[in-house]
Computed example of a mutant assay.
Amino acid sequence: MKTVGFFGGKFLPLHQGHVLAIIEASSTVDELYIILSRSEERDRITCEKTHFPYITGRVRLRWLHQLTKDMENVHVLSIEDDGGEDEYDWELGAKKIKQAIGKPITHVFSSEKDYDLIFQQLYKNSTHVLIDPDRIMMPVSATKIRTEGVYANWDFIPKVVQPFFVKKIVIIGTESCGKSTLTRNLATIYNTTFVEEYGRTLCEEIGGCDEIILEEDFPLIAYGHKMKEHQAQSAANKVMFIDTEATVTQFYSELYLDRQQNVIDEIAKTQQYDLCLYLEPDVKWVNDGLRVHGEPAIRSENDQRLKELLKQNGTPYQIITGTYQEKMKKAMNAVNRLLGFSPLE
């Protein structure tokens, strides 16, 4: 007879304690079912208690599938109920779990000693197996993460989960305002990933921008940049830094071709960043071979036009002024506030 077990939870969020339990359980039975128990009302209330961001059931289900995709004997199921806060019906929950699995359950896994009595009553023919109940191997719990915050427990957040919590900081501005250097420097300081301006990469590949860039290049720039963001987010350490975004791409489409492109506007209106830092063009203009708008009057005109486009797209931003050193300090203070870290003196 095959042994069949299940390990359930809200996974709000999924953490390394869950990972340990899933791996141990999967090596104990022939078939293991991971049960995501979810109720939007109850889960929202749980998160609101500690001002933790609500995570949809779809996102949590995806995490579990990503985590177990190479575990051939593990199956992930989602079971929804309409219970409110502290109203979980254990008997109804057990009935739904048994129906969903559709096989005799020989093992029930958890990390909670307090579940022993209820599991004996609901799963009479099953063995309750405790995994790391004293949190010795993995000193973490979802409650601890929701209370203390994700960043205080970052090492206990699985790699498949971390990108969800990465703060995305975009740095924008017109030509020669210091954004590319600032983006790289911030990523180095915070020991994380960054995204280069993909439009510059394309211009370098074609040998320039002015007079030779084509209309069809700009959607490619916008889409290519988003793919670079996705890749960087997957490897980021709590935060990531991005050099420009779709509104800036639209700005350059206007500047070089005198044409707005609807597809770029749509990208700009749907993109989401946690912080947008706008660098004023108040440092000396430097000709790097690709820049062509160095006259003070044109720099000012371009600066105002970019701000108008950002307003049209509903993009909030924080203005950063001063020398390169001053901009660095102001940017770091803005990042630290976002992450809940102490400001610089």
Rank of each mutant, 00 (worst) to 15 (best):
T147F: 13
P158S: 12
Q231Y: 15
F241I: 01
Y223V: 03
T147H: 10
A232H: 08
A152S: 14
E175N: 02
L202W: 11
F156A: 01
P158K: 14
D155H: 07
I206A: 00
N237C: 03
P158I: 15
T143Q: 14
E215Q: 12
H230V: 15
G199S: 04
P163R: 12
I242L: 13
C209W: 08
I212S: 01
E148S: 10
E205D: 11
K168W: 10
T147V: 13
E205T: 02
W154T: 01
V239P: 07
G199C: 03
I145L: 10
E175K: 09
K167N: 11
E205M: 04
R200H: 11
G224N: 06
F165D: 04
G178T: 12
V150W: 00
N185P: 02
E148N: 09
N191F: 03
F164V: 07
S176C: 06
L182R: 04
G178M: 06
K226P: 03
E229G: 14
L214A: 12
Q231L: 15
R146T: 00
F241V: 02
I157K: 05
F194W: 14
K179T: 08
K226F: 14
E175Y: 06
G149D: 09
K226V: 13
F164S: 03
L214Q: 13
I221K: 00
H230C: 15
V195I: 09
F241E: 00
A236H: 12
P158G: 13
G224Q: 03
E216V: 05
G149F: 09
R146Y: 03
K159F: 05
Y223S: 12
N153E: 14
D210K: 14
K228R: 15
D210T: 10
D155C: 08
I171H: 08
A232D: 10
E216L: 02
G173D: 02
M227P: 03
Y190H: 07
L182D: 06
D243S: 11
E216D: 11
C203P: 02
Q162M: 13
K168G: 05
K238Y: 06
M240I: 05
T183L: 11
L214W: 02
I213Y: 03
K144W: 06
T192Y: 09
N191K: 06
H225D: 03
C209E: 04
V170F: 04
E216F: 10
H230L: 15
R200V: 11
M240C: 12
T192W: 09
G208L: 01
W154R: 02
T188R: 11
P219C: 12
V150L: 05
K167P: 06
R200Q: 06
E215C: 09
E229I: 14
I213Q: 05
K167G: 02
T244F: 05
I169F: 05
I242Y: 06
P219K: 11
P158L: 13
Y190T: 03
I221V: 09
Q233P: 08
S180E: 12
E148A: 04
A187R: 07
G208Q: 00
V150R: 06
